[in-house]
Design a protein around this nucleic acid. Structure first.
Length: 430
RNA sequence: GUGGGCGUAGCUCAGUUGGCAGAGCUCCGGAUUGUGAUUCCGGCGGUCGUGGGUUCAAGCCCCAUCGUCCACCCCA
């Protein structure tokens, strides 16, 4: 019989990896907490229309990358390809945007039907932050500074850079799009096939083409910033001043446009050259029009999302994986003999209650030799050895596994005190 | 959807002009009656991705197919 395997592009995250994931998530949560952001959890499945109306009908995501299916009622549902649309829907649906501001974050799997490659999978994970009800560049700056703090906490600050741009108002962008199309149409023969296609679907996307010839052609194209409206220009200048005063380095990239239709004014991307072709680890921007577009009253909004798999890869590439991730237990309890086995089980229970220790009990028997092998593998710094002799004498052996040090035979009654003395359980939080 | 690389033990990989299916790690046992991580000895472990073809003989050559990785496209 053929073995059933995981679906292409959907990965199991195994124990060795989940330790790193938990470290990562806990760092991010802590930082989000220091900025006063609240978690929101949305369903992974939404009405297909939600994404069509927010991301944009002609984007690749909607046209060919969504997992869409009919449920038993015949309604068209879609596995979410991103989080912003769901977040807006949830907030609007529950009145969270009515006369108030919100700072929210979410984390979870997203789904896009693409060919998998390094840092890109069909089920991938994002952590996103979305803010609502704030118009000014101060909240833009806060989000960007918060993301910068993530990288410092994760030890990858030296291998990421911030790209910053403003798209201007919708009207300004439309004017610019016309000018760009006019210019490129005059030079049609120099455009590659992909760009010709984008000329009719999403002309702004041509700006970040990887084709050097196309990029050369763009050097003579009209500049987006020459088309900016006054308000967007001032917003952008104010944001730059805030970032400058905070001492944050960035690079203005007029060709940074983002793939989703709902962005306007501020857009930014954190990129790295350590992940092959998938250089973007975090991206976001302002989407003041989206809430209204989805049927709510106009509410200004800014947010970003980061790719967890890519950041995990980057932490590894930076050599910033903490080395104490291996240690998952404080104490290993080895037992020899039937009487000791049941006594060991009860002892472990008691120590977990009394001392909040992480204890791995030897189950399944085996020689003391093999039990100590397991103890070593568990990563525990100490082992307790309980055999028939100790049981009869009311004593127990405590044996250091890591550094030097002799094992000691202690009275069972003294055990808690001795364990406290050697300071088990310290410095284990990641 | 397009292009290229790679599929051999649980993992990492050797495998010569086509001639008995291999190593290291892991795991189990022993050297040491109840002492790990070092050393030594032994053992478990295989549809060589799958199907077809060529051949006396295929892990190796040919065709197809699936999977995987990387890149294009797109995106976090």
């Amino acid at each position: 019989m053929a073995k059933i395997k995981a679906i292409r592009g959907m990965n199991d995250i195994l124990p060795e990896q989940t330790r790193l994931w938990q470290f990562f998530e806990s760092k991010i949560r802590t930082v989000l907490g220091t900025y006063g952001y609240d978690e929101i959890r949305m369903p992974m499945v939404e009405s297909t229309d939600l994404f069509k109306r927010s991301i944009g009908e002609v984007t690749d995501i909607v046209e060919k990358e969504m997992y869409t299916f009919d449920d038993r009622n015949g309604d068209s549902l879609t596995l979410r390809p991103e989080g912003t649309a769901s977040c807006v829907r949830a907030c609007e649906e529950h009145g969270l945007l009515y006369n108030q501001t919100q700072r929210l974050w979410y984390m979870g799997p997203m789904f896009r039907y693409e060919r998998p490659q390094k840092g890109r999978y069909r089920q991938f994970h994002q952590i996103g932050a979305e803010t609502f009800g704030m118009t000014g560049p101060d909240i833009d700056a806060e989000l960007i500074l918060m993301s910068a703090r993530f990288w410092r906490e994760l030890g990858i600050q030296d291998i990421v850079t911030l790209q910053l741009n403003t798209l201007g108002s919708l009207a300004a962008r439309n004017d610019y799009r016309e000018a760009l199309v006019a210019y490129l149409s005059q030079n049609m023969e120099q455009l590659d096939e992909d760009s010709k296609r984008r000329l009719t679907t999403n002309p702004l996307r041509i700006l970040d083409s990887k084709n050097p010839q196309t990029q050369a052609l763009l050097d003579g194209a009209p500049n987006l910033h020459d088309f900016l409206d006054q308000e967007s220009r001032e917003h952008f200048e104010a944001l730059r001043t805030l970032l400058d005063r905070a001492g944050l380095k960035y690079e203005i990239n007029q060709r940074l446009v983002r793939g989703l239709d709902y962005y306007g004014k501020t857009v930014f991307e954190w990129v790295t050259d350590h992940l092959g072709a998938q250089g973007t680890i975090c991206a976001g921007g302002r989407y003041d029009g989206l809430v209204e577009q989805l049927g709510g009253r106009p509410v200004p909004a800014v947010g970003f999302a980061m790719g967890v798999e890519r950041l995990i890869l980057l932490i590894e590439a930076a050599g910033s994986v903490p080395d104490n991730l291996q240690q998952k237990v404080d104490l290993f309890v080895a037992v020899a003999g039937a009487g000791a086995e049941s006594e060991g089980l009860l002892l472990a229970e008691r120590l977990r209650s009394d001392m909040q220790l992480r204890i791995q009990l030897n189950c399944g028997g085996g020689s003391l030799k093999s039990q100590l092998k397991r103890a070593d593998k568990s990563g525990a710094p100490y082992a307790l050895l309980l055999g028939e002799d100790e049981l009869l004498a009311g004593k127990i052996v405590i044996k250091p596994l890591r550094g030097q040090g002799e094992q000691h035979l202690v009275d069972m009654a003294e055990l808690t005190a001795v364990l406290k003395e050697i300071n088990l359980g310290k410095g284990l939080e990641n």
